[in-house]
């Protein structure tokens, strides 16, 4: 049975690629500054910043590449991103001592207009919308 994977970077997908791309740059930049200046100050927060940067980069790349594999890997990356923003968001309120410095996901992405909280939901909705459709 042949199945057709819809392109992931067209229509609303293009808007999604734009925002994911911005966050890939933002998170990578933040991570580079944090690790470059004083890596020992907040190891947990900085590791999570790095993880966020990698996830945003992977999601952006997979959306651009498309295809079945791209769709699957993007799904995994966005799911981890959702778990990350929810858990780090909650932990940054509950266990403040664990986070002496901020990550992209701290306080559910407050420093970024709460977009980091909205983004994984938008990503998952888009991936659901572009599920493979049987041909013929």
């Amino acid at each position: 049975m042949s199945e057709l994977q819809q392109p992931l970077a067209e229509g609303w997908g293009r808007a999604l690629v734009f925002v994911y791309g911005l966050f890939a740059v933002a998170a990578t930049g933040r991570s580079a500054v944090q690790l470059g200046m004083e890596p020992d100050r907040a190891p947990l927060a900085y590791s999570l910043s790095l993880l966020a940067a990698i996830l945003y980069l992977v999601a952006t790349t997979c959306l651009l590449l498309g295809g079945t594999t791209g769709w699957r890997v993007a799904g995994i990356a966005v799911t981890i991103e959702l778990l990350g923003v929810l858990s780090v968001g909650a932990m940054s309120y509950l266990a403040t001592d664990l986070f002496p410095d901020k990550t992209v996901w701290s306080h559910f992405g407050q420093g970024y207009g709460f977009l980091p909280l909205v983004l994984p939901f938008a990503g998952l909705a888009w991936l659901r919308h572009t599920r493979r459709t049987p041909v013929g």
Binding site: G11, W12, R14, A15, V17, F18, V19, G21, L22
Partner: peptide, 21 residues
């Protein structure tokens, strides 16, 4: 970059991208 993305989607998606930019 936003303008280039927007020019590729001549619909309300393109308008949204400019707003995001």
């Amino acid at each position: 970059i936003g303008a280039f993305f927007s020019l590729a989607e001549r619909s309300r998606v393109g308008t949204t991208i400019l707003l995001l930019a």
